[in-house]
């Protein structure tokens, strides 16, 4: 059985190391916060101006002045620091954030990432995604391996407009984990019950080993 959303998030959470500063994107990456391993202390950054993001508030405690980058109400922690948007992206662009875990529409074997626009469809904007992939230390993508039509989202070349070029380090999908290398992708891990042949068959990109 391929991994479901929660299993993908749990696998992505194993990328987190004690002491890291991490930015989680919208979608499956948001679920990663639910699976942070015991004994691993990470500080979550929200690019609208917060380090040390806490969980959603208990009903009645919502604060209009306290939201995450997805505009959801959240809470603060004892470690929390607030700052403005220029400061927030100084720490992102400046390489101070250790890791970003983001969703994607397509990833190429060269580490190119497309996750912000489909030509001809509604374009909402890139938000902070381009800044994140250009700036943070390590970029981990979490997404389904194929689209609804069954076509691979792990490609030789992205077909959609890019969010960043050569920016992805690791790809976690419902079928397994792949690393971006110099000559193609390397299989790191297979999802439970998924064979290497199945992973290769679902992947358009070059897998070197």
């Amino acid at each position: 059985m391929p991994w479901d959303r929660n299993q993908m998030a749990a696998r992505a959470a194993r990328e987190l190391k004690d002491g890291m500063y991490v930015n989680l994107g919208i979608g499956i990456p948001t679920l990663v916060a639910n699976f942070i391993p015991e004994g691993v202390d990470v500080t979550l950054q929200s690019e609208n101006g917060m380090l040390g993001m806490g969980p959603f508030p208990i009903e009645g405690d919502e604060d209009p002045d306290l939201i995450n980058a997805g505009k959801q109400t959240i809470t603060e922690l004892k470690r929390t620091a607030y700052f403005d948007s220029a400061q927030s992206f100084a720490m992102i662009r400046g390489g101070k954030i250790n890791m970003a875990i983001l969703g994607a529409m397509e990833v190429s074997e060269k580490g190119d990432l497309a996750n912000w626009m489909i030509p001809g469809k509604l374009v909402k904007g890139m938000g902070g995604a381009m800044d994140l992939v250009a700036g943070v230390g390590r970029v981990v993508v979490v997404m389904d391996h194929t689209n609804k039509a069954g076509e691979s989202k792990v490609l030789r070349e992205c077909t959609l407009p890019l969010t960043g070029k050569g920016v992805v380090d690791r790809i976690i999908t419902n079928l397994g984990v792949l690393d971006v290398g110099h000559k193609g992708l390397h299989i790191v891990e297979l999802a439970d019950g998924v064979t290497e042949a199945q992973l290769r068959a679902a992947t358009e990109a070059t897998i070197v080993d």
Partner: peptide
């Protein structure tokens, strides 16, 4: 926007913040 009545210049969020600063 889709009717062509409104122009939009998309800026990456950090680029927009830094352009203002």
């Amino acid at each position: 926007y889709l009717a062509g009545e409104l122009e939009i210049e998309f800026n990456p969020q950090g680029t927009l913040a830094e352009r203002m600063r």
